[in-house]
Nucleic acid binder design. Structure first.
Lengths: 112, 112
DNA sequence: CCTTTATGATTCATTTATAAACCATTATGA
DNA sequence: TCATAATGGTTTATAAATGAATCATAAAGG
C-alpha cells in the first residue's frame, strides 16, 4: 500500500530537531569547518549535510548523530562513559520490565 | 553515483542512539503501550517501531523524535519553552557568526 | 495450564532518501 | 574592490527505507 505523502510532526519534536540542527551548524562554524570538509569526514554528501543543518526530519538518524559527534555536539549532555553506564542500567531495567504489554483498557497517558 | 553500501559510525554516536532507543522502549512499556498502539499514534508501521526501539541508524530522525515525544522522552532534558528559547538564542548567535567558512590551513579539531 | 495476543523476524512492492553534477548567489579575505 | 570559493538550490539516477502481509515464538493473564 502507498505510504503517506507527508508526515505530521508534533510541535515539540520539530523544535527539538531544529534546535539540534542549529547546534550542529554552530559547532561546525565555530570549528571553522567547511560544509564540504565536514561532509567528507562524515562520509556523506554536501547536500545531505545541508538538509541536516536545516533540520530536515527525513534524514537518517544515524548520520545526524554521527555528524553531531564529529563537531562535538553531545546528546543528553553525556560523554562516552556516561552513555555506556546508561545503556547497562537500561538493559537491567528492561530485563525487569514485562516482555510484552497487554493493554488493559486502552488507557491513555498523554501528558506533554 | 553509487552510495556507500554500508556506513561507518563512531562508537559514541552508536551508543547515543542505542541509549536513546532504550529510553523509548522503556517509556512505552512503563506507559503500558503496545508496539502496535504506539505505532498507530505515531502514524508509522509496527515494523518501523521495532527498528526504532532497536536503535537502527537508518530510521528517519523526525519519526524517531516524534515517537520519543509521544512517550515522553525529552531531548536535552528540555521542555517546550526551553527549546523555543534555545532556538531563538541559537538564531541570534548564528546571525553573528560568519555565513561561510574559509579553511585557513586545514586545521583539525577532533577531541572526542 | 491453555488460550490469546504481543513481539520478532522475513519478504516484497513502492516510495523516498541520497549522491553527484550542475548553476547561481553571496560572502570572505586579500 | 575583486577574485576565489563556500553556500544554496536544482535535477536525475540509484540505492535504501518504509509499509504491508505473513509466519513463528513467547509471554501474559485468566
Amino acid at each position: 500500500m502507498p505510504k503517506p505523502v507527508s508526515r505530521a510532526y508534533s510541535h515539540y519534536s520539530r523544535d527539538a530537531l531544529l534546535a539540534f540542527s542549529q547546534l550542529i551548524k554552530r559547532a561546525r562554524i565555530e570549528r571553522k569547518l567547511t560544509m564540504q570538509e565536514l561532509a567528507d569526514r562524515a562520509g556523506i554528501s554536501r547536500g545531505l549535510l545541508q538538509r541536516i543543518e536545516k533540520g530536515d526530519p527525513a534524514c537518517a538518524i544515524g548520520v545526524v548523530f554521527e555528524v553531531a559527534a564529529i563537531v562535538g555536539v553531545r546528546l543528553f549532555n553525556a560523554d562516552q562513559a556516561t552513555l555506556a553506564t546508561a545503556i547497562s542500567a537500561n538493559n537491567a531495567t528492561l530485563a525487569l520490565l514485562p516482555k510484552s504489554v497487554r493493554p488493559s483498557s486502552k488507557q491513555v497517558k498523554d501528558d506533554f
